[in-house]
Design a protein around this nucleic acid. Sequence first.
DNA 1: TAAACATATGAATAAATGTTCATATGTAAT
DNA 2: ATTACATATGAACATTTATTCATATGTTTA
Lengths: 120, 120
Amino acid sequence: MAEKEKMCCDSKEIHEDLLKIVNATMPPETELYDLAELFKVFGDSTRIRILFVLFEAEVCVCDLAEVLNMTQSAISHQLRILKQNKLVKSRREGKSIFYSLADSHVRSIIAQGREHIEED
Amino acid sequence: MAEKEKMCCDSKEIHEDLLKIVNATMPPETELYDLAELFKVFGDSTRIRILFVLFEAEVCVCDLAEVLNMTQSAISHQLRILKQNKLVKSRREGKSIFYSLADSHVRSIIAQGREHIEED
DNA sequence: TAAACATATGAATAAATGTTCATATGTAAT
DNA sequence: ATTACATATGAACATTTATTCATATGTTTA
């Protein structure tokens, strides 16, 4: 028996210890999935650009589209994703809808990202 | 003339001010692209899981594959992406190659992400 | 040198994703 | 009410991406 046992890297004990530690510290599947989902939102340069605009001001869809030189539809689709993930919030004023940052994590996450890419 | 002028949201002045501010604060295209590229790396639950293992220990490819219950090939492909983006580094020891975290931003970026998804 | 092991990698496939186009919804003005 | 304006949204298309499979590279052992 034990023929199907994979004894990876000739180190069975270390491997078992690792398993224990990982099982104890790894967040549940749903959280890992949500985390990946969140970072996916930051993983598109159009959305990043939208966020940078919103760092400076509360802006309506139309202005976002013009400032970023993209169609209203493209911007609107991306705003929906940003909003679903609670990175931005919106407010209606007449015909326009103004978007702004939803919370401070957005700034710090992007700041950390910039730090990372700016080291050599 | 001026027929093609888009006077978005009936507010030409505000819009021009916005343009100035945005042009002054928006990072260059290349940086925006690199930023998005970096976050894309975090935007996959397999890579997130790899990082969580590496939070605990320096681990070889084979152990990663077994702990995460994935094929060696799949893990290896993802490690390549993590390494290209300088989130992990590697070290050879005999036949095995051990991976570990490359810098501290990885921890803080993921920490910020967790904070974000864990509010309400 | 040959065989076994650990890892890397190219090609193929399936799934996810961003933009465009057409159109729907909602609000204000005539 | 009808028209115009601002935004949202569904479908289609093109591109990207993660995994699998087969195989190559590199290291150790017999």
